[in-house]
Amino acid sequence: MNVTTLTDQYLRERLSKGTRDDGRDLFSFRNISIEIGKIPHAEGSAEVTFGNTKVLAGIKLDVGEPMRDKPDEGSMMTGAELLPLAHHTFDSGPPSPDAVELARVVDRGIRAANMIDVKKLFIEEGKSWNVFVDLYILNYDGNLFDSSALAAAAALYNARMPKYEEGKVVREGELGKLPIGNLSTSCTYAKIGNSILLDTNASEEIFADARITIANDEQFVRAMQKGLSGAFKAGEVDMLVEKTFEKSKDLRKMVQSTRGE
């Protein structure tokens, strides 16, 4: 059982007044924290919390073959684990469709924004760096999309770049940073009745009719995903895209500040 169970009636009453059970207005994020470098064994890591939602992102780099269609670039792969320890409804076993969707949406945000400068990950003919982004959900209280995207961004932004010397990967010692292009983050909104709200917690998320994730960097929308069985109107999407550019400034600032920028 979640810590709070709202009734439909209670939630709608509150939303119609423009407030939420935890005291936020409709377009506010919960308290967000970022902790960098929690897993020194990984090339990069970041633990992000959105309220009680907790996500750990870990970055690993290995030497492998480039993708066949991109022989002069490095590659990247994103995985997400909805760990059964994070919520009573998460099962052990192969990744659920929810976990696969989460990984793919976060992956698209990173890839489309060229967050990793993959051209610089080419080593030699037939060899390039593969970047593994793994998202570990440690406690679920809603909005895994934005918390995971932020954790991935912060982990990549601070990741070490291992060296490849005489056929061996050197992961320790004097290392540079993973080459980063644009910084991309996401904002996810849920539609409940006639209200639209940002960053839902678990007790709100149950009532969501429709969901939309918008990932962007400073200039462009980079990835979007509508989810659940409800729908959005064109005007609502316009409004939310605009909102996302406004909201994402703070998210990018938070990531930049982890490097003291």
Binding site: I39, S45, K60, P84, S92, P94, D134, Y136, V169, R171
Partner: peptide, 19 residues
Amino acid sequence: CRYTMAPFSSLEEHGRPGM
């Protein structure tokens, strides 16, 4: 009981997630 290791947990290469 379920004991697992994160794919990024070791100082060596990327591991496989899960059991």
